[in-house]
Design a protein around this nucleic acid. Structure first.
Lengths: 109, 109
DNA sequence: CGGTATCCACAATGATACTG
DNA sequence: CAGTATCATTGTGGATACCG
């Protein structure tokens, strides 16, 4: 299984694994502005199903990108937010964003 | 279908669409060092099937990231290389790589 | 409100064999 | 050498219903 590749490749693929889900960048984008409740995220991303939202959040949680903060209230209140570590991907997102913007310009016209 | 999202999200997802394939970053990584023949790429990425290699190359070609250069020789000789435009993603790969490296360090130990 | 549980469709990837 | 073609398998995402 473990085949030697130039190291960089492995690292890049690692990042892709963490951020590659269809909705993860979208979720992270919204969390940049501060903690959000489950229902807020649902409202901000109307096309996502609850299953996918929870699934992607769980994965981000496992990767220690986001925190899950539960207040034991009635009704329940769960907030998601970046971990300190998670914030380290924000600067990575920026060049991704810029390149995508340029690419859209090329392809759209 | 078209729902308003913060723009940045769309751009990031665009990038992901272009680079998101399982093998694309791997291929691009090898092409960084210069043009490569089909068979060279196969040798450099032994786990990839021919079908996937050609498919991913075609997509990269369509997105104008790589050139396909055919010498009409016997035996045939086809070389793939970055387009000038394609080279613009190389700086994007670097932060991706660095972050992945840090992330691996965290998760492995 | 914030989830789970099932079942299902389809896209992505893979194995294998064959070709100009 | 550089592909195509076909079929099988897996992975990802979705619809819907239900639960504490």
């Amino acid at each position: 299984m473990a085949v030697e590749h130039p190291e960089g490749t492995v690292f890049v693929q690692t990042t892709l694994k963490v951020l590659g889900g269809k909705w993860k960048l979208l979720i992270l984008w919204h969390l940049k502005d501060g903690a959000k409740r489950f229902s807020e995220l649902k409202r901000l991303i109307p096309e996502i199903t609850e299953k996918m939202l929870i699934q992607q959040l769980r994965e981000l949680e496992k990767d220690e990108i986001v925190n899950r903060n539960v207040q034991s209230d009635i009704p329940p209140r769960v907030e998601y937010s970046f971990t300190a570590y998670g914030r380290s991907i924000i600067p990575v997102l920026e060049p991704l964003c810029s390149w995508g913007q340029e690419h859209l310009k090329r392809t759209e016209c």
